[in-house]
Amino acid sequence: MNPLSSGLPPRSGLGLKTEHFREVLGAQPDIGFFEVHAENYMVAGGPFHHFLGLIREQYPLSLHGVGLSIGAEGPLDNQHLQRLAALIERYQPQSFSEHLAWSSHGPVFLNDLLPLAYDAPTLNRVCEHIDQVQSTLKRPMLLENPATYLAFQRSTIDEADFISEVIRRTGCGLLLDVNNIYVSCINHQRDPLAYIDALPLHAVGEIHLAGFAEDTDSLGDRLLIDDHGAPIDNAVWTLYRQVLERVGPIATLIERDNQLPAFSVLHAEARQADELLHCAGGRS
């Protein structure tokens, strides 16, 4: 078993939504783990901490950051890093993950996961930032592969090679977002399986599954948008099966942040992932 995945069980998990706090506590559904966005819990007190504290007593927790801006040209926000350290100390999550992206420029926070030019200076900077995160938090983090909509002429390194090198240099793990892979590969005319096989799959510590929205670009070609607002697409389920054939059963999150359905709908998707994880466990 991959040491980086040792924290979360090889089960499916759900994003914990405030709308579902009471239902989760009341019904205690059979869910492998819950994941929360770290920034939502960077508040002094009140219901968010009340419910997360109670739910954490009963479920493993994945803390997922969306605001650290690891790919930013400027330095990391040390105050934000300290807030993360405090949350980790308080809730002792089994996993902490962040994105290969940037979201802040100077003091301005743009609230989106923005794309990076893949070249040597970016690689050095991202590795330095991850080193700083891991030494401050005193634990390895998982880095999530991005969903992107365009590319930089400046890029000199293939995205999968870039991620492989970050993982080799920093010792961080990989949060393999299968929806992001599908979205990016359609948007950039890449072969998703070739992309997956170019990644360091030994480092996968968690998997994300989600739904996407569909648009078209100026040529009328499919442009997929990672909006976490729809059920998981069949193509992503297929790719997930192929991933599990390669990595075996690994904690898998069903992500849904928009157009939130009833808890039972998300639970059904989680059960579907659990069945595949169970099969993958039987095979390995």
Binding site: Y149, L150, A151, F152, Q153, N187, H188, Q189, R190, D217, S218, L219, D221, L223
Partner: peptide, 12 residues
Amino acid sequence: LFSANGADPASR
């Protein structure tokens, strides 16, 4: 910026 399919990057 560019798109692999040659689409106008502004649309992306």
